[in-house]
């Protein structure tokens, strides 16, 4: 009751497309029963969690992270090392990876607390690059460029089972993050993003909450990385690299910053577009050969014409008939008077 009073009806705000989307995802093995397409969706599910973890820190709290792959990679390598050296069960490794990412987040977050905007961005980028270099420098442990191979699978069995496991993983993580943003904590994070001096004046320990956002973000980023390692059975330097950090940002911008659902949608749109374009447009040679070009043109178009991302665009469309009746009703008489 108190929460729904706050910012519209929980989850219902996105309306039917959200539920339709979930329904399509659940029915996917029936709709597209090819292993390759399901594989693309599994990876998209993992990226969705990763992008949402970026969103809670950068989109929601306004703390720009340009090196988010750090958490993903730490999660992946931790899970990989545990699995191959110690042989602990994958489910344990998922949480161990997330926990290690939180520790690294602490290491990174504490010195970063006083930094803002581009300065914070540069330092986070540097942290990720340090980890990336370490993956090569410590090749006796990390396997260098090859990475760690032979990591146990989280789920054994058919691609269908793996698909549903990844779907449950994605839904559980994003629901948890979404619930967080709708809680008191979410309100505080938004206040910090809007104006951290004013938040301080309001009595908010902004340092503590920024660090908390860092750690939550690191946790889910690490979780996604560990899941990735246990799905692809490999943890390599790519999981720490700049393109992956950039992917989280791109997916979130396309889907809609500060919405948690946005990065999930962005992850699907971009993964599907990039990986399925060759399948769908197999006959059109130009599209297949220049998919990187087409992909980037798509990103430019979305950012130009939907600056608030897909979710922001949809909410804006809904705003006239629905949101106004929901939130502005009491003020309407005064506004006209």
């Amino acid at each position: 009751m108190r929460i729904s009073l706050r910012r519209g009806v929980v989850l219902g705000r996105e309306g039917w497309p959200l539920w339709a989307g979930v329904a399509v995802l659940v029915a996917m093995p029936v709709l597209a029963p090819t292993p390759y397409i399901l594989h693309v969706f599994i990876v998209a599910n993992i990226y969705a969690v990763f992008a949402a973890s970026w969103d809670i820190l950068s989109g929601y709290t306004g703390q720009l992270s340009l090196g988010h792959a750090l958490f993903f990679g730490v999660g992946a390598y931790t899970a990989g090392l545990l699995s191959t050296l110690v042989g602990t069960p994958p489910l344990f490794n998922l949480f161990a990876g997330a926990f290690m990412a939180v520790l690294v987040g602490l290491l990174e977050g504490v010195p970063c607390l006083r930094l803002k905007g581009p300065y914070l961005g540069i330092v986070t980028l540097a942290f990720a690059e340090i980890a990336f270099s370490l993956a090569f420098a410590l090749s006796s442990i990390t396997g260098g460029e090859e990475g760690i191979i032979g990591i146990a699978s989280l789920v054994r069995g058919s691609i269908y089972i793996k698909y549903y496991a990844s779907l449950i993983f994605m839904l559980a993580c994003t629901l948890a993050l979404y619930a967080l943003t709708r809680s008191k904590l979410g309100l505080i994070l938004l206040a910090i993003k809007a104006d951290d001096a004013a938040a301080e004046a309001a009595g908010v320990d902004t340092t503590r909450y920024k660090l908390l956002a860092f750690l939550i973000s690191a946790f889910f980023g690490g979780l996604a990385g560990a899941y990735y390692a246990h799905y692809l059975n490999i943890a390599n330097p790519e999981t720490l690299a700049i393109p992956l950090s950039a992917a989280a940002i791109t997916m979130t911008l396309v889907g809609g910053m500060g919405t948690i659902i946005g990065p999930v949608i962005g992850a699907y749109v971009l993964s599907l577009f990039f990986d399925l374009l060759p399948v769908v447009a197999g006959q059109v040679e130009f599209l297949t050969e220049s998919r990187v070009l087409v992909y980037n043109v798509l990103i430019v178009l979305i950012v130009l014409f939907m600056p608030q991302g897909i979710v922001g665009w949809w909410r804006g469309r809904q705003a006239e008939p629905e949101v106004s009746s929901m939130r502005a009703d009491p003020s309407r008489p005064q506004a006209q008077a």
């Binding site: 309100l187 206040a191 104006d195 004013a198 938040a199 908010v204």
Partner: peptide, 30 residues
């Protein structure tokens, strides 16, 4: 600042600093 606010000194800013995207009620709820 937040510690001082919690002790019971609150201030306003000369140039207004609202939490723009939050509702008026949320601004005051924080």
């Amino acid at each position: 600042p937040h510690q001082i606010t919690r002790l019971g000194i609150a201030r306003t800013f000369q140039l207004v600093r609202p939490f723009g995207q939050l509702s008026v009620l949320d601004n005051v709820t924080v």
